[in-house]
């Protein structure tokens, strides 16, 4: 496998981003997540905050309209720029890790794609978010639910497929079972097995 593209879908609080960064380090390839925001900001001249504001959020249907592939929604335009960016990266033959951005569907045609969805038990996710964002239990739960609702809506709108549906991904894994480090190890083995498998 000359090119590997590791696509990580994730529930909020499941540690998906940390897992993606660790895998990128272990395979010595770049990761596109927050970096994707910077890339888009640099390319378009938008501020980092502007891209961040509209990043991976669904558009409001009532105040948006699409005409011959053009959309007035800034969310849509930012999303399309990101899809185009990862598509160009994939087409250029580069190997990379990408977090979210419907990449498991958008990059499906590339044989080097390994798609992963990371989920977690709600109790474990709450514990993580409480610590990371200094929130109480209820706030953390509401925050997780809100974030996941947005991710689901964003994903389903841009792909027409169900976010988190195991049939979309090569592997779905609950990070609570093995812990974040254990999950990273397991995924590393899985990716290596895929690479070796394709070379045989």
């Amino acid at each position: 496998m000359s090119q590997i593209i590791i696509s990580i879908g994730r529930e909020f609080g499941s540690g998906g981003r940390v897992i993606a960064e660790a895998l990128a380090k272990r395979f010595d390839i770049p990761v596109y997540d927050r970096h994707l925001i910077t890339e888009i900001a640099e390319k378009t001249g938008l501020s980092h905050d502007q891209v961040e504001k509209y990043n991976e959020v669904p558009k409001s249907r009532l105040i948006s309209r699409r005409v011959r592939g053009f959309s007035n929604s800034i969310e849509d335009n930012i999303a399309e720029m990101q899809f185009e960016f990862i598509e160009n990266k994939a087409a250029s033959g580069d190997s990379f890790v990408v977090v979210g951005r419907c990449s498991e569907t958008k990059l499906k045609k590339y044989p080097g794609l390994i798609s992963i969805f990371v989920l977690g038990d709600m109790s474990a996710k709450i514990k993580r978010i409480k610590e990371l964002y200094n929130m109480n239990e209820n706030e953390a739960k509401a925050f997780i639910e809100k974030k996941d609702r947005k991710r689901k809506s964003y994903h389903n709108y841009h792909t027409g497929l169900h976010w988190g549906d195991s049939r979309l991904y090569d592997i779905s894994i609950n990070s609570t079972r093995l812990g974040i480090d254990g999950t990273i190890d397991l995924l590393e083995d899985y990716i290596k097995a895929r690479i070796n498998g394709s070379q045989k």
């Binding site: 378009t44 309209r65 005409v67 007035n72 800034i74 335009n77 399309e80």
Partner: peptide
Amino acid sequence: SANVVGTSVSAKNGHPIT
């Protein structure tokens, strides 16, 4: 339609119009 196309072209080139 012109509004949608104009605002979309603008946004894609780094000038989002809210």
